[in-house]
Computed example of a mutant assay.
Amino acid sequence: MKLAAEVKALEARIGHSFARPELLARAVTHSSMSSPTRSDNQRLEFLGDRVLGLVMAEALLAKDKAASEGQLAPRFNALVRKEACADVARDIGLGEALKLGRSEMMSGGRRKQALLGDAMEAVIAAVYLDAGFDAARDMVLRLWGDRVGRVEADARDPKTALQEWAQARGMPPPVYTEVKRSGPDHAPEFTICVALANGQQVQAVAGSKRQAEQAAAQELLAGLDAGK
Rank of each mutant, 00 (worst) to 15 (best):
A84W: 13
M120P: 11
S32G: 14
D146T: 13
R90Q: 05
V51N: 03
D134L: 13
Q218I: 05
E69S: 13
T191N: 11
W165S: 01
A216W: 08
C193I: 02
G93V: 05
C85F: 08
L44G: 01
Q218C: 09
L47H: 02
L72C: 03
G70K: 09
A25E: 14
D138H: 12
Q203I: 07
E164F: 14
A166V: 05
V140C: 06
A204C: 04
Y128D: 03
A57W: 11
V140N: 00
A5D: 06
P172R: 14
A204E: 06
G183R: 09
D185G: 15
S103I: 13
G170R: 10
A5T: 14
S68D: 07
F133S: 05
R43T: 06
L47K: 02
A78G: 00
S31N: 09
A9G: 02
P158S: 05
D87I: 12
L162H: 02
P184F: 10
A62P: 02
A97H: 07
R137H: 08
A197G: 10
W144R: 01
G93R: 09
K159P: 07
A27Y: 09
E164N: 14
A187T: 10
A62C: 07
G15Q: 05
G227V: 11
G132T: 06
I14F: 07
A216G: 12
A97S: 12
R26C: 09
M171V: 07
L10S: 01
A217G: 08
R90P: 04
F133N: 09
L98W: 09
L162G: 01
R110A: 09
L72A: 10
E178V: 15
P158N: 07
A222D: 04
A19R: 15
P172Q: 10
S34R: 14
K82P: 00
V194L: 07
E11D: 03
V151K: 00
D225A: 15
K2F: 03
V80Q: 01
R50I: 08
V151Y: 00
R38D: 02
Q167H: 11
S39F: 09
T37I: 11
A25P: 01
M120W: 08
P74L: 07
D49C: 03
M171K: 03
A57S: 10
S68R: 05
S107Y: 02
S31C: 13
A195R: 13
Q200A: 13
A197L: 06
A59V: 06
V175K: 13
K112Q: 13
T177P: 00
S68Y: 05
R26W: 08
P184D: 08
I124P: 01
D157Q: 11
Q203D: 08
E164K: 14
L162A: 02
L60A: 12
E189N: 15
A212Q: 01
R81F: 12
S103R: 15
L220M: 09
L115P: 00
V140Y: 02
D130M: 05
V28R: 00
L129H: 03
L79I: 10
M56W: 01
A217K: 01
K209P: 00
E121Y: 03
D87Q: 15
A57G: 13
K82S: 03
D118H: 07
L24V: 02
A5G: 03
L54W: 06
A66K: 14
K209Q: 12
A25M: 14
V28M: 04
A25H: 10
V151H: 00
G149Q: 07
K180T: 08
S208H: 11
P74S: 08
